[in-house]
Design a protein around this nucleic acid. Structure first.
Ligand code: MN
Ligand code: MN
Ligand code: MN
Ligand code: MN
Lengths: 223, 223
DNA sequence: AATTATTTTTAGGCAAGCCTAAAAATATAA
DNA sequence: TTATATTTTTAGGCTTGCCTAAAAATAATT
């Protein structure tokens, strides 16, 4: 009853998961980690990997893991592009805040139309990054490097500007809202506690404390 | 793996189909007509009707047909609202033309979020009708009557303004594009051929011929 | 009223994606 | 190397939504 295409909705979610887990260099991913990431049983992953392998979207070597083929990677990047453009639309045009859009984009990313997403891209002015600072792949699949580093990598006395987050969890983002930390916030590390690596910092002139766990998920452009 | 809700995607398509077939007065609909409309086997409809009936979305009396309950009708109107708002977005904001948007809206109408659709409504300026002249239900489910009548109901010498179409088929809409007939076009019936009810009309000052079949699908506000 | 035609339901199957439990393979530790 | 722990696969099941074929019910004709 629905549009045919390269991959079903569930297949797309697997491909995207493997892409996310593989990182930039495309490391092979274990069955169990896909299982954990998607919240499905390892046995289900086994079956799907076999299926996607037959479709040449990924390669699988037993006990070595799964990695996307060029075809699979292209599909994954297309989904990521859609996800991030829709998130940008929701925030820029419909006035959602950054912690509300991820789940909606999980639905919208599966809408099938190259034309639609390219027009949306143009309508938004070809944005380079999404509301969380993640780079938006262009029409050809190219992804610009953002140059963001984790705040927890900064030394005492160093400073930078918040450019993104390493986590889409809405609890995390709401917490940042409360702390008045967002993209564009100016950060200066005042002190790093040796015991737990927690950070004392000034953000937009206001002094706050950040746990290492929190700081590690805040991404900055180092000055 | 996906959002739970009142109805699955397939269920929504059945509900919407029954709503479309029932007309404004909610006539009971036969199994075979649903089957024909959706392009599925009558046996499949039988099964789904049983399921939706158990969910109290419709009522079924054997050999009398199916009609939506209040709950089912509300669901249907919600889907129609989403469909028409997305179509409006695609035309007004992304520059699609009216014959391109229906299939995309078939996908977008299943995106689950009350909040999203209400914000989209606001973003579009609470439009009353979609790109095909169909009324957009408001947030509460109310549907304004458009007062449109078929062009083939006009008598010789009468005139009006095109306000909508009675058909979403892209071949039909492309044909209207070629004839330069669109919403807002001013129509005057010059002559009706007695033999085949075909119409000689002036549209925006230009004289054209319309078959009865074509004219019946053009909806106008009578002057 | 009886026959024929149409509509609808039941019965039995299939594919996709998920599950659990058990078996097999691999990795780690002793 | 042998034993233990972990990971992965296989086997068997379930639900949804579709199919075809056959049976049953209803409607239309004669
Ligand atoms: Mn996201
Ligand atoms: Mn998804
Ligand atoms: Mn439509
Ligand atoms: Mn649909």
């Amino acid at each position: 009853m629905y549009l045919c295409s390269v991959a079903t909705l569930a297949e797309e979610d697997y491909i995207k998961a493997i892409y996310s887990l593989s990182g930039i260099d495309g490391n092979p991913i274990s069955t169990s980690s896909i299982s954990g990431y998607l919240g499905v049983n390892p046995a289900s992953v086994s079956g799907m990997v076999k299926k996607l392998s037959a479709k040449k979207l990924l390669e699988y070597k037993r006990s070595h893991g799964t990695s996307l083929t060029a075809k699979g990677k292209k599909l994954a990047i297309g989904i990521v592009r859609k996800h991030r453009l829709w998130e940008t639309f929701l925030v820029e045009k419909l006035g959602f805040s950054w912690e509300e859009v991820h789940d909606l984009a999980e639905q919208l990313e599966h809408i099938r139309s190259e034309d639609l997403i390219n027009r949306l891209d143009g309508y938004l002015g070809f944005p380079k990054t999404d509301p969380h600072g993640d780079p938006i792949p262009d029409k050809s699949g190219k992804i610009a490097q953002t140059g963001l580093i984790s705040l927890s990598k900064l030394g005492s006395g160093e400073n930078g500007v918040v450019g993104g987050v390493g986590n889409q969890d809405s609890k995390f983002l709401k917490h940042l809202n409360q702390l008045k930390v967002g993209i564009g916030s100016e950060v200066k590390v005042l002190n790093i506690n040796d015991f737990d690596k927690s950070i004392e910092a000034s953000i937009d002139g206001k002094k706050i404390f950040l746990s290492d766990k929190l700081a590690s998920q805040i991404l900055i452009f180092k000055d």
